[in-house]
Simulated assay, not measured.
Amino acid sequence: MLIGGIDEAGRGPIIGPLIVAGVCMRNEDVDAIVRLGVKDSKKLTPTTRLRLLPEILSRAQRIVVECIPPSLIDKYTSSSIRGGLNTLEAMIIALIISKLNAKTIFIDTPDIKPQRFKEVILSILRNDYNIDNVDIVVSHHADVQFPIVSIASVIAKVFRDSFIHELHSFYGDFGSGYPSDKKTLSFIEKCLRKGSLPPIIRSKWSTLKKFKKTSSLTLDDFLR
Rank of each mutant, 00 (worst) to 15 (best):
Ile97Thr: 13
Ser206Thr: 11
Ala60His: 05
Val134His: 04
Val23Gly: 02
Arg82Leu: 13
Ile136Asp: 02
Ser153Ala: 00
Ile6Arg: 04
Arg59Leu: 14
Ile73Pro: 00
Ser215Glu: 02
Asp161Gly: 04
Asp135Val: 06
Leu217Val: 15
Asn27Gly: 09
Asp161Ile: 01
Ile81Ala: 09
Lys99Trp: 13
Gly12Pro: 00
His168Phe: 12
Gln61Cys: 04
Ile164Pro: 00
Ser71Ala: 09
Asp128His: 14
Leu44Gln: 04
Ala94Asp: 07
Ser196Trp: 11
Gly4Ala: 09
Ile19Val: 12
Glu89Lys: 10
Leu88Phe: 01
Phe222Asp: 01
Gly175Asp: 06
Cys67Phe: 00
Val30Asp: 05
Pro199Val: 02
Asp221Trp: 06
Leu53Met: 15
Gly84Ala: 08
Ser215Phe: 06
Ile96Glu: 05
Glu89Trp: 01
Leu185Glu: 06
Glu166Tyr: 06
Ser176Cys: 01
Leu122Trp: 05
Asp220Trp: 12
Ser78Glu: 11
Leu167Thr: 00
Asn27Val: 08
Thr218Val: 12
Ile96Leu: 07
Thr104Trp: 02
Val120Cys: 03
Ile6Gly: 05
Leu197Val: 13
Pro114Phe: 00
Leu52Phe: 09
Val38Lys: 04
Leu122Met: 12
Glu119Ala: 10
Arg116Gln: 13
Leu2Trp: 11
Ile14Phe: 05
Leu217Gln: 04
Ser79Trp: 13
Asn127Asp: 15
Leu197Ser: 10
Lys212Ile: 12
Val154Glu: 02
Leu36Gln: 11
Thr77Trp: 09
Ser203Ile: 12
Asp29Gly: 04
Asp161Ala: 06
Ala102Asn: 03
Gln115Glu: 14
Ser186Lys: 14
Pro114Asn: 00
Pro17Gly: 05
Cys24Arg: 14
Val30Trp: 11
Ser206Glu: 15
Lys183Cys: 01
Ile6Cys: 04
Phe211Arg: 13
Ile73Tyr: 08
Pro13Ile: 15
Leu122Val: 15
Thr207Leu: 12
Lys75Ile: 01
Lys39Asp: 00
Leu50Glu: 14
Ser186Trp: 01
Ser58Gly: 11
Ser216Tyr: 08
Leu197Arg: 02
Gln61Ala: 12
Leu53Tyr: 08
Pro54Cys: 13
Asp173Arg: 11
Arg126Met: 15
Asp31Val: 13
Glu55His: 15
Lys194Gly: 06
Lys212Asn: 15
Ser215Met: 09
Glu8Arg: 08
Lys210Val: 03
Gly195Pro: 00
Thr214Cys: 03
Ser169Gln: 14
Leu217Cys: 09
Gly84Trp: 09
Arg160Tyr: 06
Arg126Gly: 07
Tyr171His: 08
Val20Met: 11
Ser150Gly: 02
Arg82Gln: 08
Phe117Trp: 12
Glu55Met: 13
Val158Cys: 03
Ile68Met: 02
Phe187Lys: 05
Ala156Tyr: 04
Lys204Arg: 14
Ala142Glu: 01
Cys24Tyr: 09
Arg49Asp: 07
Pro54Trp: 13
Ile155Asn: 02
Lys157Gly: 00
Arg51Gln: 14
Ala142Ser: 06
Ser80Arg: 09
Val144Thr: 14
Ile105Arg: 02
